[in-house]
Design a protein around this nucleic acid. Sequence first.
DNA 1: AACTACCTCAACCGCGATAGC
DNA 2: AGCTATCGCGGTTGAGGTAGT
Length: 288
Amino acid sequence: MIKTPPCLLFHVKKDLEDFISCKEKVEMRKGGWTLDEDSKLIHYISLLGQGRWDSLAHFAGLKRTGKSCRLRWMNYLRPNLRRGKLTPQEQLLILLLHFRFGNRWAKIAEQLPGRTDNEVKNYWRTKVQKHAKQLHCDVNSLQFRDFLYYQWLPRLTEQIRSTSSPQEQLMSSSSSTSHNNSTEVILENFTFLQAGINESTNITCPINQSTPNVAQVTSLIDDNIWNLSSGNWTSSGFEDEFYDLSSTDMAIYSNSQDQCHSWASAGSEVLLPDETLGLSDVDLWLFP
DNA sequence: AACTACCTCAACCGCGATAGC
DNA sequence: AGCTATCGCGGTTGAGGTAGT
């Protein structure tokens, strides 16, 4: 970042005072950003750095509030942002982190490199919350939490496992810092979730069905999840259109009990029957 | 082709926390 | 200590796109 010279700071201060004095006269723009506005904002951030958003907006000649500029930069323009749909790995981590932190989107987004709190929030609202609504239960209810834990997570992890490439499985035999860090994040939060579930659930489950335990999640992560060479979230052989678990995917899972319950052989935890969770066959077809 | 319903996500708003005067 | 400006966060909205009829 280029250091702002003192003389420029003087002018910044003076101009800002002028700007504030006539603030009421300036009509602020709202709505979508134009390419011109974007390039001005980027240019002036490169000159002045981030922060002091109101004055930055003024110097860039943008009829925008500082707030609007900050939002545009943070959610769209800043470098190293990831675009496109959330990978199953990212979805898994969002679910785990939400169990732990609740609606603290910024906190959750911290663990997802290149993702914004806005994206995490949108995912939760459009996918998770919507599904809770379809199941006629509150998104924060124990019933829905159990549903996520016993139905959604196993299927998500199975999705990750089934779509990873042999190449990555080969790569996973090595290790790296980013891999270990990411693995730790997921495991820590999975353990946290397990503790919460075990504490509050007193339901007897059939022994032929299970959710992943910590050892299995470890194995899954070691097998597949992280792109070890780049330190980024892995592409895992996924194309964008496969990132999301579509209702078709879930219908396939729902109709393929053997496949989706492949955790069963080694797991100590068990998959709750759909009836126990208050889910009908119809509900399962609604699965994201 | 036209209409409608639904979905996605960028952007706005309000509020609380913090910093600076 | 109190006031004001700024920042950052979470909730909400609505424009534009897409799928279904």
